[in-house]
Design a protein around this nucleic acid. Structure first.
Lengths: 145, 145
DNA sequence: GTAATACCTAAACCTGACTTTAGGTCAAGT
DNA sequence: ACTTGACCTAAAGTCAGGTTTAGGTATTAC
């Protein structure tokens, strides 16, 4: 059992954020002792899942829905499983997007390195798109698909 | 040369967003013809870079700074290069975060699949953390590091 | 000539996720 | 007794990144 201050330190989250999560219904079963929140292992695990779902791009109101399902027991296993499968697809898509972004960034890093060495961008434009170093080719392709 | 409507279709961005970007200074050199914006190749390329920098997590006001550097010519090559190198680090970090998130999601998918097969979560808790299927082990480790 | 389109601006509005403020309770230490 | 520290609430404020609204111009289509 932990106080809000302890949980705040454990997760490096402001107390105000924990209270906000609680107000939004993310800890539907949290107990209180004369008004004071008691975070049990259940809430600690919930918080880990909250961070995961948030990082996957899920909104607070949908995390609330998930937490409500958790309170409902075995009847919602398949809903919960489907939610995580949808999250998996979303995260995989996001990672692909980020890989494309990284490709373009790498191209730009190469580009400015060349511009710095040349003192101008002129000849870089000229050498595109056929004379690119092979390692840079895909970044260019990606950036100009 | 394109009108705002054509660019809107090319990039699948609302016209209001393009005007907002312009207002925020993201197209510092855009020309107008009797009040109407003319998007040249320069602005089209700028828009590609804007999408890249946005996807990398950069804020609009910092993208504006970058676009201003582009207008200043060769004197800012190294600033621009450093910006992209910083973006590379940020994106790489974000991808690592997303991989951890994905690991936990995969664990949860496995968990609910097992819960559904068993009809209860009881025995799953019991079989943790030593008897996990090897393919799932790292997801659990990650989720409970 | 008038109606439909496509463009324009300034300013207000919106959303999600918090954070801050203002005021209050309660237990422990001095 | 009284101050300190950790907790509490409701409500207002903040911020980024847009979107919507209200009113206007300019060109083409009939």
């Amino acid at each position: 059992m932990y106080t809000i201050g302890q949980v705040s330190e454990m997760f490096h989250l402001p107390i105000s954020t924990l209270r906000y999560y609680d107000k939004e219904g993310l800890f539907p079963d949290m107990q209180r002792q004369s008004g004071i929140r008691r975070f049990s292992d259940r809430e600690i695990e919930a918080l880990r899942v909250i961070e995961c779902l948030k990082a996957s791009g899920l909104e607070i109101k949908d995390i609330k829905q998930f937490m409500a399902w958790c309170s409902e027991g075995a009847a919602t296993y398949s809903l919960r499983k489907e939610l995580f499968e949808t999250r998996r697809k979303a995260v995989e898509a996001e990672m692909k997007e980020l890989q494309k972004t990284l490709d373009m960034i790498n191209f730009k890093c190469w580009y400015y390195e060349k511009a710095l060495a040349d003192g101008s961008e002129e000849n870089i434009i000229e050498m595109l798109p056929d004379k690119l170093p092979p390692a840079i080719q895909k970044y260019y392709d990606n950036a100009h698909k």
